[in-house]
């Protein structure tokens, strides 16, 4: 039997009819048409489905939809501002070639954002730890780590200007 649940996605409150066995990723992609988060493994291993729930990165492919009721979900679609200006983490990934095919990118960027929210000036080891659950088959990771370092620098210069 379907259940009706309500939660916030990228700042908007949504009401969705769901089957209790659905996971958050399925609802984002198939009910809400937010296809930024990707399904890779579907088992928590690859991180392509990473989104933030109440600010914390989780694997949405194994996150029970019924636990999302009343919570705040942030997906890659919610990062850019409403006028389309990219978020500094997104800018940094473009600038430092942290994106190739792009399949891992939404998850990578959400993990990177969560890291930088908690730790604005991470060292390389901290970046590697924070991204350990995000697989990339293209870049070899070096450019991704450079992107996160660059994002930290961009964010701190914005901080100083403000």
């Amino acid at each position: 039997m379907k259940r009706s649940i309500s939660f916030s996605v990228n700042g908007d409150t949504v009401q969705v009819e769901v089957h209790p066995h659905w996971n958050l990723l399925r609802v984002l992609r198939e009910e809400l048409e937010l296809t930024g988060a990707k399904q890779g493994c579907g088992e928590g291993e690859c991180g392509a489905c990473t989104v933030l729930v109440n600010g914390l990165p989780i694997n949405s492919c194994i996150y029970p939809i019924m636990e999302v009721e009343g919570k705040d979900v942030l997906t890659i679609e919610g990062l850019a501002s409403r006028d389309g200006a990219l978020h500094p983490v997104q800018e940094a990934f473009l600038e430092k070639a942290g994106v190739q095919c792009g399949f891992c990118t939404p998850g990578m960027i959400m993990s990177a954002k969560a890291l930088l929210d908690a730790n604005p000036d991470p060292d390389e080891e901290e970046i590697r730890q924070a991204l350990a659950g995000n697989m990339c088959r293209c870049t070899g990771y070096i450019q991704i780590i450079e992107s996160v370092k660059h994002a930290a620098a961009l964010l701190s210069s914005i901080e100083q200007e403000a």
Binding site: G44, T50, I58, N59, S111, Q129, A132, G133, N134
Partner: peptide, 9 residues
């Protein structure tokens, strides 16, 4: 254990 994502759940 696992990744940050896994450990958050």
């Amino acid at each position: 254990i696992g990744s940050v994502q896994v450990r958050n759940s």
